[in-house]
Amino acid sequence: MSLATLDAATLYGLMGAVLVGIGLYGIVLHDVFIRRLLAFNLLGGGVFILFGVIARRGAGAGFPGDPVPQALVITGVVVAFCATALAITLIERLAAKDEASDGDDHS
């Protein structure tokens, strides 16, 4: 298949699939929480791109894209942001605990 046959939607779809793959790999195989969180964000990014592809392919009635998947993505981004914020808070708390206990060991 030559590159010319790749239209934008297919290309974005492949990109989304690659991001989902990298994200899944990271979330399953890393054991540091911050890396797993970053992997989760990559995975989420891949899924959001797929929503964009679906919006493009579902375009009709003179619109450049189907508005429903775009609305879903906006909500999805907000949810992913909240999840990241919650996870970061927990990671910070955990790091603070570890620092405190390290200090105890050295004194």
């Binding site: 994200g23 929480f33 989760f40 899924v47 998947p69």
Partner: peptide
């Protein structure tokens, strides 16, 4: 982490169905 990975997979399924 388990729950977030789970919900992203769910969301991916939602994208496919839509």
């Amino acid at each position: 982490v388990f729950a977030l990975a789970g919900s992203v997979l769910y969301l991916l399924g939602v994208a496919v169905i839509y």
